[in-house]
Amino acid sequence: MAENILVIGGGPAGLNAATMLSELGVKVTLAERDSFLGGNPKKFKYKFLFPDMQPADDVIGKLIKKAETNSNIKVYLSSEVSDFKENGKKFDATIKSPDGNETKTFDSVIVATGFEHFDPARDAKYSYQLFDDVIDIKDLERMMGEGNFVRPSNGQPPKNVAFILCVGSRDRHVGNQYCSRVCCTVSVKQAIELREHFPDCEVYIFYMDIRTYGFFEDLYWKAMEEYDVQIVKGRVAEITSGENNTVICKGEDTLLRGPFEIPFDMVVLASGMEGGPQSSEMAKKLGLELDEHGFLKPQNVTLAPFKSNKEGVFLAGACTGPKAISDSITEGGAAAMDAYIYAVKNH
């Protein structure tokens, strides 16, 4: 009889873990809280993925198709794990779906519950939701996905746009000390897309550090050298409304030690990633440990980044910290391997 493995979360990490396990002949149960597979990239309609501008639908679409067409994977949509108990070295879990409750015994469990976008409205200085023309990177991504690049306030193309980095990241004031890793790269990617779409639109990026790590640096260089995106050093402390339907960014240019109050047509906040309520919920239900940042804590960040503090429960993707989609897919595969080994040993 084949092993049974539960994968919680149908985003990039969960989908890849489920697919790989199914190809090993494992019976996989995939529980997803939303009514669709694909996780945040699907939910917020990401358009193109950095660094090579692959259409997000191609990448996520392939993963979804693999999972949906595989007979070894049973997908439960709009569902949640309502009950979770240890049963020797195995686990009894009840999955609550619109079709009713179903309790099964699993050899091992992969948690891939992902992240939540930081809600910039929580940081009042950015006036998000107060002004129509202050949006964040996930809003812009969705607007681009819908082919709708224009200013939300009046439907006109913007003449100048400011990106503000580190919104909800690296800021004790909002309670998040960590770097969210991908927002810099997403911002320079979107800056390039904006410049491509509106060659006359000036694009500025207000930054403290630009952390386009590894080869993502190429994208940052490209934004400057080929698209004349101007970076300005300094964090913006206040966004107010200005004349002619503009929004004014007030901040300090730390390189020239000069205060500025510059009007823009549109401001894009590079909001970060958070563990979200699902991380603490999983921690409570499954008896896992949370770290000080609100993400699930691996047993050993270097040696066993996919193992949780509980034997037989494995972690993958952005539930353990901010991650790029490619990292999540990699971790899905790695956690699948760990979960498979555990399941085979104790089957």
């Binding site: 100048n160 000036e202 500025y204 004349d228 101007q230 000069g258 205060p259 510059i262």
Partner: peptide
């Protein structure tokens, strides 16, 4: 006021 209220890119383009 010492506050800058404009980025003037025409100068940048001239240099470029």
């Amino acid at each position: 006021s010492r506050v800058d209220s404009d980025f003037d890119r025409s100068f940048f383009r001239e240099i470029k």
